[in-house]
Design a protein around this nucleic acid. Sequence first.
DNA 1: ATGGTGGAAGGTCCA
Length: 261
Amino acid sequence: MRIATWNINSLRLRMPTLQNVVAALKPDVVCLQETKVPDELFPVDDVRALGFEHILFAGMKGYNGVAILSKAPLTPIDRRDWCEKGDCRHIAAILPSGAELHNFYIPAGGDIPDPVLNDKFAHKLRFVDELADWFRGKAQAERILVGDLNIAPLEEDVWSHKQLLKVVSHTPVEVEKLIAAMKAHDWVDVLREFVPPDQKLYTWWSYRNRIWPGNDRGRRLDHVWVTPSLRPALAGATVLREARGWDKPSDHVPVAVDFNF
DNA sequence: ATGGTGGAAGGTCCA
């Protein structure tokens, strides 16, 4: 089974690109973030035409929004209202294998890396703390967590560790919280199981950098985590880097992970 | 040090 995750930055605008992503990766499940479409306008028929009969979505007008597209049936489970904002940043399901799949869109956090001066950064930190607490309280099970976590935890997850230490996405406070959230449920960082931590690995390149991939100033903001019992089932990981160079790209590229089930 | 681009809107806000 291949599970892909992608911050699509508008599902309706990028439906043709989604078709190309599906053709390139042939995923069984696609988790999307930033669908930017209210539920009543979700393009169910277009998604079914791509081969995904089973669709879960939680969207709102203008911002945020998450969805799970699947070829096989999904059993919806406990969505929750993170930070009491009702803002469509999480959706979850049980896969046919029995594994739980959680799709997250963590707040980007604004520009100023200070929770006192910047409410958006405070929200981001609170969200990551809540994520840690929620899974810490759960019994171990076969679980997969994917999504745009908007944090690049390792030095080689950014183009310049030193230059990004004060840039939201790579500041010590959010990195520490993300690592604490991983430890709270023994999450395994799947991409780093396949690409060693001393090698650069990015999934996002800013729209504000016109010369992609010239200077390759990327960050690894998109992640796939699994609980330890799923580690033996891991069969591979792919970052579809080329998608950043396609026509009308998202600023994030799709990431796919293969499982032996 | 600054501003750079893109999306949803049809103001600006968000990233």
